[in-house]
């Protein structure tokens, strides 16, 4: 905060930035983007960020069409999307990692289940068996629950196809297979969590930043069978299996440097202040090393001196 207060007059003197930045993309990143937008306006009172967040799938077409310069994505671009972008814009987009996230599996808080293996996840959510050959799980009993849970049917909730969570879950947890057709597709992560919280038999997946009082986060078992909760350490180290970076893609031609508005935005996002927002939103902030790499890639000044002054 002191850093912001120090920088504000300096920047205002250097270049009174003004204008509007538009962003299209991930709903998972939507909360982060709005917070960064608020903070950006605090740093540069004349700068505004407009956020459209309907899913990661919306970013590549918007970037390729030139409808936006900044696209938030909770998954990397696919080859096809990249190729389309290059075909339209003549150069590849730059992917800037801005936070770490984990795909989290939620159940109702009354559910006694505590952990799942990846094979069970596939058996719960997929129609295909591209990872493993486990038989389909229709009742909670098949996951080892007993009592009246044993005969209860499983209700499945997930994100809509436009979202990065959907695509990533499909690629990582289903090995590219197909979702069961009765997986409810809801147009928002918190809708998934809310639906799970209101249905005792439900299980759902969403990003990390959405837990509520009604749901419980499940641990996933890694290759050795150790249950791993998506905690800060497990996500940073990658021990939690469904970990992913969240990206912001920029339309930036090679050799060019960022326009001032985008520069100010990324300077904020890739700063301790911006990363504090990440933690506050329930995601995992980037480790220092990745932060530095990202700043270098965008030719932003290194953080070294800044981190010292703000570590008080």
């Amino acid at each position: 905060m002191t850093l912001g207060a120090l920088l504000l007059p300096m920047m205002a003197m250097a270049a009174p930035l003004s204008g509007t930045l538009g962003s299209v993309g991930s709903d998972t990143l939507g909360g982060l983007m709005t917070q960064w937008g608020e903070r950006l306006s605090a740093r540069h009172p004349e700068v505004r960020l407009q956020v459209q967040a309907s899913g990661s799938g919306t970013a590549p077409p918007a970037l390729a069409e030139g409808v936006t310069r900044i696209g938030a994505m909770s998954r990397p671009m696919t080859e096809a999307e990249r190729a389309d972008f290059i075909a339209r814009q003549g150069h590849p987009p730059v992917a800037v990692p801005v936070a770490l996230d984990a795909l989290t599996l939620f159940v109702h808080r009354d559910n006694p289940l505590t952990s799942l293996t990846l094979a069970q996840v596939e058996a719960l959510f997929a129609d295909t068996r591209f990872c493993d050959q486990a038989p389909a799980i229709r009742r909670w009993g098949a996951l080892g629950l007993d009592g009246d849970w044993a005969s209860r049917p499983v209700a499945r909730f997930g994100r809509n196809t436009a979202s990065g969570s959907h695509a990533l879950f499909k690629r990582e947890a289903l090995c590219g297979g197909n979702f069961r057709r009765d997986v409810n597709e809801l147009p928002g992560s918190s809708a998934v969590v809310a639906a799970v919280g209101r249905s005792r038999e439900a299980i759902g997946y969403a990003g990390l930043g959405y837990p509520t009082a009604m749901v419980k986060i499940l641990a996933l078992r890694d290759d050795q069978g150790t249950p791993r909760l998506p905690t800060h350490d497990n996500v940073v180290s990658g021990r939690y299996p469904l970990t992913r970076p969240l990206y912001i893609y920029v339309n930036l031609a090679p050799g060019e440097s960022l326009p001032p508005l985008e520069r100010a935005f990324f300077d904020l996002v890739l700063s301790p202040e911006g990363q504090a927002v990440v933690a506050r939103q329930g995601f995992v902030s980037l480790p220092e090393s990745r932060l530095a790499t990202a700043r270098r890639a965008l030719r932003l000044p290194p953080l070294a001196d800044v981190t010292q002054s703000s570590s008080n």
Binding site: T78, E79, E81, D127, T128, R129, R171, G176, N178
Partner: peptide
Amino acid sequence: GHSDAEWRWAAAVTGD
């Protein structure tokens, strides 16, 4: 990945 003929709607999301 399926064994029976079915009506399905699922747009490609991972590209492959």
